[in-house]
Nucleic acid binder design. Structure first.
Lengths: 336, 336
DNA sequence: ATAGGTAATGTAATCATTTACATTGTACTC
DNA sequence: GAGTACAATGTAAATGATTACATTACCTAT
């Protein structure tokens, strides 16, 4: 592999001039620049980014911490991140944490060992270990969808989950539903509280009874949707409408409801959350909340790059627009 | 950020000793190692991986080139890659190329500029530009699923697509199907030729007519499946069974067939390829070929790491086991 | 007691760049 | 024609680690 020195020799200039010809073309004369470019082509020279990074202190890389790579919704966010990063000359390191704190520590630590410049976190955990907590203060980091729980405030890109769930609840009530259940994802996060809060606020306004027994689940997966339905079906009092806290759960739930010989939405209406691609293609097509996933990813990049460049952030909370997508998994409540 | 020098001061030793205490603990005495560990904890020191990499010439990072991040099947592979890489102390850089040669060049070039040590390519294109082609010779690179087309031979991890499609064809013929169509993905790749070859070989053996008119498509997406069905349905001669070259296409196809008022498999049987998670949950559940996606990812990491370490590869072609998963999207042919 | 071996540590070169500072050269002004 | 300004380039220090080589100290065998 040829280094800058080979180019120097070929072009008959100093390393400084070669470096300038590449990073700061206006500082070298047209003539020498051409000479250098020719030498570069001839030698097949490629600047060693490591050497460059060590001097400038910038790696032009960000790491994305994902709790669950199988979730297509995260994928969409990551796609947005990747594109925006690329446009800004940044690379994206993938950190599949599986929600495991040890892995989160490891990936988050990359910013401390100069491997990456910033972190985009798709989970609510504080990814640094106790050891590193003090150092985390100045770390460029942003959370998407979830809100990071920590003493330090980090900017967040999120949906108005509360309002979105209010919209879903009103939609179902407009079809005459009175008996609701929730199949939730992880329940120790802020978005869970926001979503649940949105639902219960509407139910309270409408004087519809609801209690925590009607909340099942604990994981954002198809299997959790199946399992959730089975639990609900084993109960005496059965819901006529189920809020699933993501589309994967809803897909599992609908599948399982049909297995029980019941109709969606004839017997039970189901709503999801996220609007992943396939939700429009299952049977029945899913009523859900559309999140602008790839835009959220782009926004996250924008914010974390601003932090990296030490620009001032106007807002530390960006709220994205949701959209209620009415498809065919919701309909009139039975016996109403 | 504290450097190795601060640790030296605190521990009262030289940089060499600190470095050795971390990378080669057996070379320093127990006593000084403890002293150094204490100093590290005290200072919050994190080794700068850039400085380390520049000296060792290893970045401990590989880049994955993905043509299409929205495809859940690739995701599964990437998940396998990420896990295997992590276990070996490697990080994964994500390169969403969208099949764009310019982006491929850019990402592939990372190995030439010391940003990554190797490449895992999920597409069939030769990712280097003409400029860099000569340098590509020694680059650690492996292709998964597809086979890279180039003068240089790279190892490949793939399925026996030919045999898999033979199995699908035989399965459908056993249900009495005689009129087939194919909704393909990109048709200029080796896997397309292998898969098509598998199908036509069986049809030839059974004296079943088939010609290129019955091949539609050109992209691996849900939309391509819908469009493909519409083209086929506009024809005079309609198929009773459709081979979709991935599950996304099959999902779109089934959805569109039902829109036309036809039944799957009553009127038309549909098979997919890949066995993505959701394929078991659509209506009807999809008959498809299961690929061990995450194992393929793991295998790819194994192979590329061997190349990086300049170990000799026993095989330059790893063929993975497929499995025909019979679900409910296939059944007896109409009028048979 | 001396030579020789070994374990532990230190010194300083090295990796490939960037960049502060120094130098050179040219053109322009009075 | 001396002085000034500025553009272009060069020199060498610096980035933060690793590591070849040098040194020291101590132990053992003769």
């Amino acid at each position: 592999m040829s280094t800058i020195k080979k180019v120097c020799q070929l072009a008959g200039v100093s390393t400084a001039t070669v470096s300038r010809a590449l990073k700061n073309p206006s500082m070298v004369s047209e003539k020498t620049r051409e000479k250098i470019l020719k030498a570069i082509a001839e030698s097949g020279y490629r600047p060693n980014v490591l050497a460059s990074s060590i001097k400038t202190g910038k790696t032009n890389t960000i790491v994305v911490l994902v709790p669950n790579l199988s979730n297509p919704f995260f994928l969409k966010i990551i796609q947005g991140i990747e594109q925006a990063a690329q446009e800004s000359g940044y690379s994206v390191l993938l950190g599949d944490t599986q929600g495991d704190p040890a892995r989160e520590n490891e990936y988050a630590g990359m910013v401390l060992s100069n491997r990456v410049d910033g972190i985009i976190h798709l989970d609510h955990s504080f990814p640094f270990s106790d050891n590193d907590a003090a150092l985390a203060e100045a770390v460029p980091m942003v959370s998407v969808c979830e809100r990071i729980v920590s003493d330090i405030k980090y900017p967040v890109i999120e949906l108005d989950n509360y309002a979105a769930c209010r919209a879903l609840a009103k939609h179902l009530i407009s079809y005459g539903h009175q008996k609701f259940a929730v199949i939730a994802g992880q329940i120790d996060s802020q978005i869970h509280r926001d979503r649940l809060g949105g639902i219960t606020s509407v139910l309270a306004e409408e004087n519809i009874a609801f209690n925590d027994d009607m909340i099942v689940g604990g994981e954002y997966s198809i299997e959790a949707g199946e399992k959730g339905v089975n639990i609900l079906m084993s109960r005496h009092e059965k819901p006529t409408a189920i809020f699933c806290f993501n589309d994967d759960i809803a897909i599992g739930a609908i599948h399982e409801i049909k297995k029980h010989g019941l109709k969606v939405p004839g017997d039970i209406s189901v709503v999801g959350f996220d609007d992943i691609k396939v939700s429009g293609y299952i049977d029945p097509p899913l009523t859900t909340i559309h999140q602008p996933a790839s835009e959220m990813g782009r926004k996250a990049v924008e914010v974390v790059l601003k932090q990296i460049r030490k620009e001032v952030l106007k807002k530390d909370r960006e709220i994205m627009q949701f959209q209620l997508v009415e498809r065919e998994s919701t309909g009139l409540a039975k016996n109403s």
